[in-house]
Design a protein around this nucleic acid. Structure first.
Ligand SMILES: [Zn+2]
Ligand SMILES: [Zn+2]
Ligand SMILES: [Zn+2]
Ligand SMILES: [Zn+2]
Lengths: 163, 163
DNA sequence: CAGATAATGTTATATTATAACATAACATAG
DNA sequence: CTATGTTATGTTATAATATAACATTATCTG
């Protein structure tokens, strides 16, 4: 095992999410500023909503919130913002759930493996060298050239097992 | 590396798909007969349609075919059959594509990792011990108990690289 | 055959996502 | 500072994926 990086951990009991959220927003703003990308109010708001918790968020839940805030939001409003955020690496889509989750290493190039607790709903994100490496080598041995990996692991997190 | 099992390989140039398909159908029939499960004409037909090629098939494409065969098919017709076939382990859903693919080891209990060529569309299926093992151990070290794994690998297969 | 169970038919609707075109905001060259 | 192009957003409509709910039919069991 070379490295095991936990991008987004399961939270400790004393997790201060407001700090966590704020740090993500600051990072994203900084990242965009640096490269002339526009983290518009809308995009920023959608990022905030995705990061409202550590659980996956549905596009239409975001839409509902935006509509309640009385902008004239429609599906494209949300999907465009999500596309932007995914392209910049600020959020990830969980393919097996049709839902979105904030990235714990926004803007950093990395692989992702998601651990999803089906009791509490919380998602942890890993950027694990060994897993990518192993899958790459298996694929290689079959003459297959990997370009994109979807790894979503469902189960029960530590605290839910304890309870 | 303990074992690497290829459940559904990328096909050789001389692949005889009619034989391949037939063998799957016979296996499924046998499997159902053995346990008193009913592989009804409808279910059998849907299995055939999923296995029409080695590429992922969309539910609504199956539906279209069924409708053309002038039964009164509706979405539930297809989704119920697919549910049955998935439960028996005859087909798998590719979560990242909302599509379905035939299982190369129908009815056998196994893990799955899918290699999907985005040029030719062909899907290979692995049941690789090491990958499951590694992911399990990583999850373990985080106190996470795995119950279900989604692994979908997109890239370019050998023959498409050659061409 | 009667009653129970499983499978299918049928209609409607929920959920997820994109197409297509109009307008507005913003940038920068002249 | 304006014209002009570009990017972002607004707006309407629709496509694509999936399930709910209830009726009917087929199959099994006693
Ligand atoms: Zn947090
Ligand atoms: Zn990430
Ligand atoms: Zn074949
Ligand atoms: Zn399989």
């Amino acid at each position: 095992m070379k490295e095991k990086q936990v991008v987004t951990p399961f939270r400790s009991v004393d997790h201060q999410h407001s700090t966590c959220l704020n740090s993500v927003l600051v990072t994203a703003e900084h990242y965009c500023q640096q490269r002339g990308l526009k983290l518009t109010p809308l995009r920023r708001r959608v990022l905030e909503l995705v990061w409202k918790t550590h659980e996956p968020v549905k596009a239409y839940d975001i839409l509902q919130t935006l509509q309640a805030e009385k902008k004239g939001a429609a599906p494209p409003t949300v999907y465009r913002a999500l596309d932007f955020l995914q392209q910049q690496g600020f959020v990830h889509k969980l393919e097996s759930m049709n839902a979105y989750v904030g990235c714990g290493a926004p803007g950093q190039h990395h692989t992702s493996q998601f651990l999803i607790c089906h009791i509490c709903g919380v998602v942890a994100e890993l950027d694990d060298y060994d897993i990518g490496e192993l899958i790459g080598s298996k694929a290689d041995s079959l003459g297959f050239k990997v370009s994109q990996l979807t790894i979503e692991i469902k189960g029960v997190c530590g605290s839910c097992q304890a309870a």
